[in-house]
Design a protein around this nucleic acid. Structure first.
Lengths: 127, 127
DNA sequence: GTGATTCTAAGTCACTGTGACTTAGATGTC
DNA sequence: GACATCTAAGTCACAGTGACTTAGAATCAC
């Protein structure tokens, strides 16, 4: 159940994941072109290759080797990364309390009427 | 007005800041003892010294050199770091939208009755 | 089939941030 | 004066990151 893995992703690794979230699955070529512009040059392609190798090692990405051009798929969702970052932020700066973080954020945020209604609904449900 | 500085603080730098937030102001000795245990040895003391030097360079800390034992004071508040981290998280993973982050957090958090009331109040005020 | 292209595999490299550590000399204490 | 404690100003090893290189396998164009 509880996979408590700390997910640590660098800036460019995140761009790669972003591309995978967008496309579902993709080859290195497609990813490199998306991240660096069309077409990515050989060095940029190699960088994307290295980033994917590291993401695979971290189990953030799955590599399908069946066809010659390997196909990559994200193994972590953006929401997972968000939750992870929130937990880590809470533990570093709010004594582990997501509630503190939430209340802080409540004061910063400018909600639309719709969003306010949604929050009200969520809160009322919790009662 | 808007100081948009990205504040980047390492794990141990944060412990040092934590000590300063707690004490108001402190010498290196006091900080080292707080962070590493009483009494901190010479190496730990030197590490604290280096951390403070770096925090000073980043303007996260102010050093008062008037007395022989320098006195340090935090220049950034914990809330500032929280806000900063939230902004940075939103921009990395939520297309810059704090609202998205807020709604996400709303689903994760288990609020007490009091906290729910507080949120309701904040939301109603915004109407 | 041959040659050119594109891919994978498996590295290296330079730069940076971080925390640990060292040493010299100034200041303070007894 | 002797000794402890402080500041100043470094160095050092290690890890993460993104850029880069090269060799060889698979594929494509002709």
């Amino acid at each position: 159940m509880g996979k408590k893995k700390r997910i640590e992703v660098s800036e460019y690794e995140l761009s790669v994941l972003g591309c995978l979230w967008h496309r579902g699955e993709a080859t290195i070529r497609e990813i490199a072109d998306d991240v660096y512009g069309h077409p990515a040059d050989a060095v940029q392609y190699a960088t994307a290759q290295k980033l994917l190798e590291r993401l695979e090692a971290k189990k953030c990405v799955r590599r399908d080797r069946r066809s010659h051009k390997h196909l990559f798929k994200a193994l972590v969702a953006r929401e997972e990364l968000i939750d992870n970052s929130l937990d880590s932020l809470a533990s570093k700066l709010c004594a582990g309390s997501l509630n503190t973080l939430f209340l802080r954020l409540a004061g910063k945020v400018k909600l639309t009427g719709e969003e306010r209604d949604e929050i009200r609904r969520m809160i009322d449900d919790a009662d």
